[in-house]
Design a protein around this nucleic acid. Structure first.
Lengths: 193, 193
DNA sequence: ACTAAATCTTAACCTGGTTCAAGGTCAACC
DNA sequence: GGTTGACCTTGAACCAGGTTAAGATTTAGT
């Protein structure tokens, strides 16, 4: 499995020489996932941070009524996982699964800590990654509070056109914070006029 | 203005000797804010990351209808600001103001970059800070999607009891994603039974 | 202390979005 | 090639929460 994508990601923010790359590569665990396959399940402690090399994953929360709520999608080039469980080593309240056949690299928690000690510039990389992630989370929060579902769908389609191929509509509805039925209505109105 | 609180925060995750503290202290800009005073305003580029030494600040988004939406409160010991504007150096879409008389330290962007270069362990501090912040953001997102306003208010009261002293109810309503009128209904039902 | 302004509440009515139940579509698999 | 099962759509009844407007209460400025 080709790890060049992950190093390209690192090198957006920090420089790495070949020796460092080799070392980092040695702790990454490559895996292939089939569509629908679970990566993390509710109740288990998340022991890996996950890099998506190809394909698409989704992380979601299942509430008391059994309704799923999508927290995030993760496409090629993105990191994903349950940061709460990973950080605190508590059982995960989220599930993560593949929406399409995918390739991922697992970075086990212990190895991540070790890498951060050995190469402090990785602290910088993840600091920047997380800083940007907060910006996205705030943006989404604001959208949910200030914009109508109709508009949210339009914005989503524009922002992540590639996702609509992979992702069943019901999960897009969930991500947008509405029911699949209501998304259907929105789409109908949209195409009907 | 006493900077010991900010170092206590740093030292939750990294160790600092006296020389380092002195140096860090030398770039922090202390300021006192009166209740209601603006720290950041819409349209201007956010040039400081902000540490709240005492008091309470709030960051909010004003939508096209003129309705405010609270993104976050920040109490003593918290960092705050508009990370989007700060990072990308684009005009801010948020406002930040003091909800009570407050003391803050400003960390100018240039100085923050310099500190991160000079003391790489600060990268670690902020990496951990941001990592935890993402967890909070995801938690809030899930709450907004899966829990009724009534429950959200109860959870909020339990989680941030100290905030209800400082913060006008209308801002709490906004934070919860409801109107002040509806929060009033919830409170009435709650006390009435 | 007085006033003006901001905040909080109440109540009647309205609507974006949900729920429930049924039917339609399509791909996968004996 | 028929059956199964996941997904998407439709429509009607319903509800959580919004809107509007008015009044009650607190806060802040002079």
């Amino acid at each position: 499995m080709d790890p060049s994508g992950i190093f390209a990601q690192f090198e957006r923010h920090i420089a790495l020489d070949e020796k460092e790359k080799l070392f980092i590569r040695s702790v990454l665990i490559p895996a292939r996932l089939k569509q629908g396959e679970f990566v993390e399940t509710v109740g288990k402690i998340t022991s890996n941070f996950i890099y998506v090399n190809s394909g698409c994953l989704m992380t979601y929360y299942t509430d008391a009524d059994g309704t799923d709520h999508v927290i995030q999608f993760a496409m090629a080039g993105w990191w994903t996982g349950d940061l709460h469980s990973f950080t605190k080593e508590e059982p995960s309240i989220y599930s993560t699964r593949a929406l399409a056949d995918s390739e991922v690299f697992y970075l086990p928690k212990g190895d991540m800590e070790m890498l951060l000690q050995k190469f402090p510039k990785l602290e910088r990389y993840f600091r920047i990654l997380f800083q940007n992630s907060i910006v996205s989370h705030q943006h989404r929060l604001i959208q949910n509070l200030s914009v109508t579902a109709d508009q949210r769908y339009e914005n989503f389609s524009k922002r992540y056109p590639s996702l609509e191929q992979y992702v069943p509509l019901k999960y897009i509805a969930s991500y947008l914070g509405i029911t699949p039925e209501f998304l259907s209505k929105i789409r109908r109105k949209r195409s009907g006029n």
